[in-house]
Write a protein that binds this DNA or RNA. Structure first.
Lengths: 187, 187
DNA sequence: CTAAACATGTAAGAAGTTACATGATTAT
DNA sequence: ATAATCATGTAACTTCTTACATGTTTAG
């Protein structure tokens, strides 16, 4: 079975929900996968074209009078199989996540203690904002009346939990590292 | 002051150490920045060319008899200023880290419980290996005789600590999520 | 002797972002 | 009216990886 890139699989996955057009795929990603996946129109439309070419989906064009054409994509059997096949495949290797703050810290020898500290404080603040965003989204899902009937909400909460845990760990690292720099004052 | 990409700044930073050639820059990254930064020769050599063009470094070519030419790069005053300027600048926004496992989990509705579980177990195993690697490197640095005189070792330990903490958090998330799936058995 | 390490580079292609281009509909 | 949202798409550009091309030196 042919391999595609993750962006293609992400779109294939979204097409299993009620999102059927390029525009609504973008919305879905911005609303639901935002904290661990993003995508631009510059990728979505060409990828949809590829998906149709590869017969993983069929496109139904509805040209209502006056309105511009709207393209609705429906997964084919082949498309569903391709998606399932990818879902089963274990992750090959953990990605190396480039981290700008670690890079700056690493060359911190060329900077004053004060500047390193403010760099870390700024980073910590951004992490705390992100953490709060995750908590807010989580609360919104839990309080949403249909939450126990909606099959997606459980998965959504899992991904949020991941975000919360790793963000929390980063915040704690900031605090620990900041303390080291603050204590260096007297040395 | 002109802006460059992070890869350029990383190389500028490495040129402040004793690494002066494309080959040794690659080695330095593979040995020291490996867990949060990587780079290929296909980027290094063109970037070095750019750095010289922009007068951020000068190249000294030593052509020993017989041996192939070796290019040694030395930062100029302008190069040092450019690096320092970047170091000071706070991170603009936290990057969205694409996460393949979360993407697969999100579409887990289309998979059996068993397959989701083995996906998570495989991921957890990889994370545990990574964690052990970090611990080993940390021990090697701490036990290395010159560790308190080497100014780099402190920064190295900070970046390792970051890796350990975030990896640990991911492992804990795997355990928590796995438990949820294992308990779903009876429902 | 031969494999690994030293050493420098290019070319093709994949993946992704940003800006541009166009136009309808709906809410304020 | 006019701003926001709906809706689709392309082109240029940046970044990065992989494979290729070439040749020397050193260690086992």
């Amino acid at each position: 079975m042919k391999n595609y890139n993750d962006t293609t699989y992400a779109i294939l996955g979204i097409l299993t929900t009620n999102c059927r057009s390029g525009y609504s795929i973008k919305q879905f990603i911005d609303q639901s996968l935002n904290h661990f996946w993003k995508i631009s129109y510059g990728q979505i439309y060409p990828t949809l074209k590829l998906i149709v070419q590869e017969e993983l989906a069929e496109v139904h064009t509805s040209s209502s009078t006056g309105k511009p054409d709207k393209h609705e994509y429906y997964l084919t059997e082949k498309g569903i199989e391709t998606l399932k096949n990818w879902l089963e495949k274990p992750i090959e290797q953990l990605p190396v996540e480039r981290n700008e703050i670690l890079l700056k810290l690493f060359f911190g020898r060329f900077q004053s203690r004060e500047k390193t500290i403010s760099l870390l404080e700024n980073y910590k603040e951004k992490l705390e904002n992100r953490y709060q965003t995750y908590v807010s989204i989580e609360q919104a899902i839990i309080n949403y009346p249909d939450n126990d009937t909606d099959p997606d909400s459980m998965y959504w909460l899992f991904t949020l939990d991941y975000g919360k845990r790793t963000t929390r760990a980063s915040i704690e690292w900031c605090e620990f590292t900041l303390e080291k720099f603050l204590n260096k004052e007297d040395s």
